[in-house]
């Protein structure tokens, strides 16, 4: 008997409960208790994101993004060469004196500019989906991660994010990454230090 069959046989002989209709349970997508409604999703998102040590800049339109990014880079004293998801290549980066490229991220890259599928107000979290034009490494390898999100893409909870994803794509991409601020570790003396292996800085530009 294979390990699989042996394990499953043991489980079957031990289970006492009535058998559940697996497909029915899945289709129901029952949500657990969620937070009470937030008055203003944007305000909640910004507050929580800042609490997680993300920086949030709000701009009026897509075209204001390069200027906001330039301002941040200047302020942080960072280089002005960035990797960028293709969806933002059309912006006037040149005018903001930032050079952008949409290539495969390498460990040496310092700045990664991405979009986000949506953002979650409850926890100040970004939701990114991997894909051809949305490589996961852009939000991971560079020390500075800049995410551009439209205000209307802010949903209340992770449950809402899943519903939005099912509606938009049906199936899951290879990787769904929920990002809540710069990477951190508290392994040494339980003291929080930002910038573990992932980005040490996260800028969220809200349009």
């Amino acid at each position: 008997m294979s390990a699989r069959d042996a394990i499953l046989a043991r489980i079957r002989s031990a289970s006492r409960g009535p058998s559940a209709n697996v497909e029915e349970v899945i289709r129901a997508h029952q949500c657990g208790p969620q937070p009470l409604a937030y008055g203003d999703l944007v305000q909640r998102f910004v507050e929580r994101a800042q609490r997680l040590a993300s920086t949030v800049e709000q701009v009026r339109s897509r075209h204001d993004v390069p200027r906001a990014v330039a301002h941040y880079l200047e302020h942080q004293n960072l280089n002005r060469a960035a990797l960028c998801w293709p969806e933002f290549l059309d912006l006037d980066w040149f005018g903001a004196r930032i050079s952008v490229a949409a290539q495969r991220p390498e460990p040496e890259d310092e700045i990664g500019i991405t979009g986000a599928f949506c953002a979650i107000a409850e926890t100040g979290t970004l939701m990114l989906l991997s894909g051809h034009d949305t490589p996961a490494a852009t939000s991971l390898l560079p020390e500075t991660h800049i995410a551009v999100v439209a205000r209307e893409r802010i949903v209340a909870t992770m449950e809402d994010a899943w519903a939005l994803l099912r509606q938009a794509h049906g199936a899951l991409p290879r990787a769904v990454n929920f990002i809540s601020g710069p990477s951190r570790t508290a392994d040494i003396e339980q003291t929080v230090t930002l910038g573990a292996h992932g980005p040490a800085r996260v800028l969220i530009v809200l349009i």
């Binding site: 894909g131 290879r174 990787a175 990454n177 929920f178 992932g198």
Partner: peptide
């Protein structure tokens, strides 16, 4: 900081 939901392998067009 990160919650990752990983499904299947790299798609043909993914980098």
């Amino acid at each position: 900081n990160y919650v990752s939901v990983l499904t299947g392998v790299k798609r043909a067009d993914e980098s």
